[in-house]
Structure formats: C-alpha cells, structure tokens
C-alpha cells in the first residue's frame, strides 16, 4: 500500500472513532446504516469488482444472516452473537451449494441463478409468516445488553475494519492475483494453471458469508427485520454504491456507500423520489464514469502529477 493511501485510511479510521461524540443520535443512525452498506458493498465488490461476476443474491445472503440469527434469538433465546455466527455458516454453506451449481457456467448463468435464489429467499420469508412474521417484521433483541446506538456503532465499525483489513490481505495474496487473472481473461488464466472455478467459488462464498455478517449485525441493531433486507431494492442500493464509488477498488465501495447514505439524508425531503435520484446518479456513473468516484479522482491526481 502506498504511504499516502495508508495515511488517508488511518485518518478516516480516527475520524470514525471520535465521530459518535460529535454527531446527534439521528446522524449516528445514518452512520450505522452507512457502515452496514460499507460492509455489503465491500463484500459484493469482492465478486463483482475483482472476479467480474454480477451476483444478485447478496441482499438475500444478508437476509439469511439476519433471519437465522433473529429466529434463533426469538424462538430459542440464543444470544445474537451465536445466532450471527450460525447465520454466517448457513450463508457460507448455501453460497457454496449455489456456487457449485452455477459457477462452472459463469457469466450470465450466475446472474440468473442468483436472481432466482434471491427471489426464492424473499418469497419464503414473506410466506412463512408464522415463523418469520413476513412483511409484518420480526422483532429481535439488541446485539447485547441494553440498547445503545454508540455500542452498535463501535461494533459495526469493528466489523468494517476487520473485514476491510481481511479483504486487503486476501487481495494482496496469491488468491487476490488469481481473482484478477480470472476477471481479466478467464481462458488465459486457466491456461496458466489458475483453478478458475475454485477461485470464483472462493470469492462467492467469502462474499456470501460477509453479507450474512452484515445482515445479522444490522438486524440486531434495527431491532426489527423485514423482507426489505433480502429484496432487490437493497440489492440495487449495494450495486449503486459500488458502481458510484468505483468497482474493483478498495476505497470505492466505502466512498460510494457513505456518499449515497449522506446524499439520502439531504434528499429525504423529496420523499418517494430519492430512489429515482440515486438511480439517475448511478446511471450517470455507470455510463460515463465506470471507474466511479475513486477511479475518477485517481485519474485526476495522476494527470496533475
């Protein structure tokens, strides 16, 4: 990592550490949501940005994470910590199965299969209302102890830091090189001995488990989980954040998630139409600045120096 980059990451981290003492309760809520989306977008970026596969099941895996843990907590009184862990394991197993099923075929088949899977998850959660309470929403306990936004913020922040550091080391390792090799030219990668299917599957399972972690934490912070979490609407937000921030970069999803979360606070007055604004911004980026904010800024700096 370049020195300048390291310094900016550290500054961001320190700012994040003291932030809860500077902002109101209301903004703290936005920040926690923002951190949830940072987790979601960063892990989705792992498959979409680094191995070039568009999965639509990311929100569904978050849903699996929060509903597993939520149901375990409500029905059996299992503490959220173990519940979230169970959710992650379940999501990992499911993504392994799903990935084994469709990753061999790659490309569009993966997108369609994950789309189907995502809808199946949502429909089951919506219909098994006796267990999940469907669209009525399931009330779940707080992460631990008494409800406190500051606690939730620091737990979320810790998860984000751990996940980002983890992703950084994965990308720096041989596996990370293989990710990119698979994205750039699958056939060439295979010909030099990169196990294409294995590499893709690894990325897919990693992303799925991280989504479950994000979903589980967020659900126990919100205290109420609904099928909105595993919906295509959430999926769109994750996709838009990654695209706007910059696919295939470490900082992209972080910048994109925080950018959209803050933007959403400012355009709340337009109520129902803020999704429209998001989508238009996302389209402008996808169409004219496919490298996103981070890539675009990077280019500007490069041009100047």
């Amino acid at each position: 990592m370049k020195r300048a980059n390291l310094v900016s990451w550290c500054i961001a981290f320190v700012v994040a550490l003291i932030l809860p003492f500077l902002v109101s309760d209301y903004w703290l809520h936005s920040l926690i949501s923002g951190l949830f989306y940072v987790l979601m977008a960063s892990s989705w970026n792992l498959i979409a940005g680094y191995t070039g596969q568009v999965s639509f099941a990311h929100a569904a895996f978050a849903g699996i994470g929060c509903y597993t843990s939520g149901i375990l907590a409500v029905k059996f009184g299992i503490p959220p910590f173990f519940g979230i862990l169970t959710g992650i394991i379940l999501a990992a197993l499911l993504s392994l199965t799903l990935g084994a099923l469709c990753i061999r075929m790659g490309g569009i088949y993966l997108s369609l299969t994950t789309l189907g899977f995502s809808e199946i998850v949502r429909i089951i959660i919506q219909n098994e209302y006796k267990i999940t309470r469907g669209t009525m929403g399931l009330k779940v306990p707080f992460l631990f102890g008494n409800y406190s936004k500051i606690t939730a913020f620091y737990i979320m922040l810790a998860a984000v830091v751990l996940v980002l550091v983890g992703i950084y080391f994965v990308l720096k390792s041989d596996l990370g090189l293989q990710f990119r090799a698979v994205q750039n030219d699958e056939i060439a990668a295979a010909s030099v001995g990169v196990p294409v299917v294995f590499v893709r599957l690894t990325a897919f399972v990693m992303a799925g488990s991280l989504a479950a972690l994000a979903g589980g934490l967020y659900g126990h912070y919100l205290l109420l989980i609904t099928p909105h979490i595993p919906s295509l609407d959430t999926m769109f937000l994750v996709l838009a954040m990654t695209v706007i921030g910059g696919m295939g970069t470490m900082a992209g999803p972080v910048v994109g998630a925080l950018f959209l979360e803050i933007l959403s606070e400012y355009i709340r007055v337009y109520g129902e139409f803020h999704v429209l604004v998001f989508a238009i911004v996302a389209m402008i980026f996808a169409r004219f600045f496919p490298q996103g904010i981070v890539g675009f800024m990077g280019n500007l700096i490069k041009q100047k120096t």
Partner: peptide, 22 residues
C-alpha cells in the same frame, strides 16, 4: 460486455420504475 449491460439495465429498471411512480 454482458456484465456491463446487466448492470446498466438493472439501474435502468430502477429508474424507470420510479419514473412511473412519479
């Protein structure tokens, strides 16, 4: 670039759906 077109049309779907609402 099939992935690119998928992303573009996915965003398009969200835009158009919300435009209809508007």
């Amino acid at each position: 670039n099939e992935m690119y077109s998928l992303i573009i049309t996915f965003i398009l779907y969200i835009i158009v759906e919300n435009l209809y609402l508007f």
